[in-house]
Design a protein around this nucleic acid. Structure first.
Lengths: 152, 152
DNA sequence: TATTGTTATACTCTATAACTATA
DNA sequence: TATAGTTATAGAGTATAACAATA
């Protein structure tokens, strides 16, 4: 890092343009989820994704991943549990802890959302050449490699 | 479109992987806005962006762009107006209509968010080569060209 | 009559603060 | 005493339904 002094300014300009251009991806990504047959709110879906990535978690760690407070996450888990998407079990070693786990139905909802997103994105990608699609995927994956995980 | 039959299946597979990989961009994009000095909620920020892209709008058109109902958007505009970010004026030709416009403060908030996003993205982009950054920007811009606008 | 926008009501989501139970 | 989780309360956000004003 910090090669020549002009590099940082050029990178900043690039960062601004990438931030602006990314809005379309953000809108398409969130909109696509709404077209899934499963009726799950955006915050609940975000929580399901976090649990899916992370595996069973306690409340504090899930809160960190969501960027929310434990009290908010507790209430969110109330609704997820009522909807049959997660289970809460008392921790084995530390009885204060709660282990939050996806149910089969929770995983099914995630799969429905991924399929809806696939269909939505595929329609957009129909206008691109295979080379352009590969370029986009490579760029997104490189970004994902470097982006800090949500708990930071 | 509809070149050879195998192309659509290959595109679908690509669409799924792009959808999965895009999550990191979505998280970084939304998280970056939270680090801005301006304290504006995500729904309010989304509305400011929509008005900025579109220019002065009436309530129904803004609702369409947000994917919300007019009643919800009316309440959202109540809060935006209280915060001094937008103004509501009676329409000139049709007196039923309301023209919603960004204030100088609303535009300043958007600029603060864009700067916060630029700083956040620049840190991530520091790990990429200039060629990789250019590839990502090109892919995002191509996607933005093809993605349907939010009112659809 | 149709359209624009609002208000009434209820639910989800979130933060702040106070609380319980366990370590 | 510190930590994990919950509950109490209040405000933001949104949908459904009913309403007012204008076309």
């Amino acid at each position: 890092m910090q090669a020549r002094p002009g590099d940082e300014a050029a990178r900043d300009r690039m960062a601004r343009e990438i931030g602006v251009a990314a809005e379309a991806v953000v809108l398409a990504w969130t909109r696509a989820a709404e077209s899934a047959p499963a009726t799950v709110s955006a915050p609940q879906l975000k929580a399901l994704l976090a649990i899916d990535h992370h595996g069973p978690v306690n409340l504090v760690r899930l809160s960190d991943r969501l960027g929310a407070l434990p009290s908010s996450t507790s209430r969110l888990c109330d609704r997820l549990e009522v909807n049959g998407l997660v289970t809460r079990e008392a921790g084995a070693t530390d009885r204060r802890e709660v282990t939050i786990t996806l149910t089969a139905r929770g995983r099914a909802v995630l799969e429905q959302v991924r399929q809806a997103r696939q269909a939505h994105f595929s329609r957009i990608l129909a206008g691109m050449t295979p080379a352009e699609r590969a370029e986009l995927l490579a760029g997104l994956r490189r970004f994902a490699q470097l982006a800090p995980p949500p708990e930071d």
